[in-house]
Design a protein around this nucleic acid. Structure first.
Lengths: 114, 114
DNA sequence: TTATAATATATAGTTATTCTATGTATGTTT
DNA sequence: AAACATACATAGAATAACTATATATTATAA
């Protein structure tokens, strides 16, 4: 995600939300899904994704299992029970933060117009 | 802004927007205004604000002048012409990014409800 | 009167996160 | 044969925000 640095701090929430929503996914699949769902706007890099996934693993909010399909190993990442709690918390917190930022960006000089 | 790290990447846009909207402000005033406008949710720290302001100065999107009120020096930060252009760009980009994130966070399984 | 809080500035150093660049390996298409 | 897509991953750089600290004045509270 080079095109804007707004992603910082939101990446793990987005990934966690995606895994909660779609079920277990493997890394490469996550990058494609985020790219597709964002209309090619958010291009997740491996150098961002894998460290983020490893942190979530060590935090106990994800776990992994592997499958081999056509000689290619896939490492699936899935949400743990505590991860589900965290997902709800973080999603709510991010949406709250977003609404605050939207208010801050809305020019008060324009409010008052009918 | 310790309570959530979502701020990362958005701080300078918020400050730039605020200065564009309210006119020149001094550092301490900015922290109070952001705190107040955000309903005490975003608590800007000096260690975050002043480095951010200095970066914007060196980028040429802000300039400063000083005033002394009751023996206290105030360093006012104001938006340059190129800063006005940047403000419009960054604000639009942030709002676009926000709408993408909102879409990503919206569970597609829930869409379809009336 | 002394201490604390509010006003006002700012920096040094730490931590955390994302990115660039790179590396491995297989299968498919040109 | 080369390039591209699939699939993993890491090392090191860059950046941004934070904690903690420092200075100084004025106002308030104990």
């Amino acid at each position: 995600m080079n095109q804007h640095e707004f992603i910082k701090g939101t990446l793990s929430t987005i990934v966690l939300r995606l895994l909660s929503d779609k079920g277990p996914m493997y890394g490469y699949e996550i990058t494609r899904e985020v790219r597709q769902r964002s209309g090619e706007k958010i291009l997740l890099k491996e150098g961002s994704l894998y460290p983020a996934l490893r942190k979530m693993l060590s935090d106990g909010i994800l776990y992994t299992y592997t499958e081999t399909v056509e000689n290619r190993t896939r490492v699936y990442y899935a949400v743990t029970d505590s991860g589900k709690v965290r997902e709800a918390e973080q999603t709510t917190a991010l949406l709250n933060f977003i609404s605050i930022v939207e208010e801050l960006l809305n020019p008060p000089t324009q409010s008052g117009y009918a």
